[in-house]
Computed example of a mutant assay.
Amino acid sequence: MKGVLLVNLGSPDSPTAKDVKPYLDEFLMDERVIDVPLWLRNIIVRGIILRNRPKKSAEAYKKIWWEEGSPLVVISERFTEKVQSKTDIPIALGMRYGSITIKNALQELKNKGVDEVLLVPLYPHYAMSSFETVVVKTMEEKAAYFPDMKITTLPAFYKNPDYIKILSESIQRELKDFEYDHVLFSYHGIPERHIKKSDPTKFHCKIDGSCCSTNSVAHNTCYRHQCFKMTELVKKELALSEDKVSLSFQSRLPNDPWLKPYTDFEFERFPKEGKKKLAVITPAFVADCLETLEEIAMEGKSQFQEAGGNDYKHIPCLNDSDEWVGLMAKWIKDWQADETLPA
């Protein structure tokens, strides 16, 4: 019997330092997130970051926490329920980090008789710290507890025409009544070394502005290329002017080169160039979360306006929109019928 496992990032159980600390510990101790030797990761995470970061992060979570719980979790649960209503095979939700575990989700599917699973990492792009770690963790749980399960992974869908279409239509609706000078695609940042580590050729990715436009098998696992490609596809779909669109990368750790340009630097730069009406899109996420609701919608707006900007609009993620639910249901049905996966 077939079933589906949807997996997103995860969230602490509450916006308190007590619950944020173990969540951050699990997240940051992941070797695909902070990819240094274990002894050094222990020093960085448990010796430095976890001393002060949980309290600061808890305050950020409090700003965006909903009455029902973490926005990311609530939206993901709503999305799962809606997709389930449009399909006739079991669907379970797991999170890479936190108490809603992948193991429990797989057990839920097994209890319903599922022995063949479509794994859906809820990330449009491939990155070792997001898509890859979900796949690796799921396969570890399968090997340890569900050896007889067959698992197929839905590939990154950053350039899927149907996904680009519904993403573009969502953006267009939000821009309809907003007079903008510029549209910024802000993607989650990753260290530059992750790009080179994910390059199967070990020579193509140079992060020099040219390799992303040169065809290569490396693009299948290159987060940077995929972000640029998605931006170009949406820009073309919406016929956005070249000079009114750019991309940047947010959320980085200090003392380490991450993908550039940095989103916060762009917020300060735009008003100086006369771009004082800004719309910001966060297409690395399918569901709004701390990084979109607090870092971009709140902190980003303040930074932009303090730098001299006037009008600012954060465009929500697809969340549990009917169009996104319908597309996911279609992908599931195609796989269920003949194991066809979207390209």
Rank of each mutant, 00 (worst) to 15 (best):
G309D: 04
Y180N: 04
W324I: 08
N255S: 12
Q336F: 03
G94V: 04
K277S: 11
D177H: 10
G189Y: 01
C205F: 02
K86E: 09
I315E: 01
F185L: 02
T80M: 12
K272L: 14
L259H: 11
F203D: 07
R51L: 14
K272G: 08
E31G: 12
S251R: 13
K313Q: 02
K260I: 15
P147W: 10
S241C: 09
K330P: 00
Y97V: 02
E306Y: 06
Q250W: 10
S302Y: 04
V74L: 03
E268F: 03
H188Y: 14
E26K: 07
N8D: 13
K202Y: 04
C222S: 12
E237L: 01
D338G: 08
K86N: 07
D243Q: 14
F270G: 01
V20S: 01
K56V: 14
E299G: 00
S70R: 08
K277R: 15
I102T: 03
H314D: 00
C212I: 15
K165F: 03
M149K: 06
F27C: 10
A127H: 08
N104K: 13
G113C: 12
C289E: 04
P254S: 09
Y187C: 03
F267Y: 15
C289W: 00
S251V: 14
W335R: 06
V4Y: 03
V280S: 06
P283Y: 07
I190P: 00
W66R: 09
Y187N: 03
G308A: 09
Y180A: 04
E31F: 10
L175H: 10
A58M: 03
K63S: 10
I100Y: 04
I48N: 03
T282R: 02
I315R: 01
E108I: 09
G300Q: 02
W258G: 05
T138P: 00
M328I: 08
P90E: 06
L24I: 10
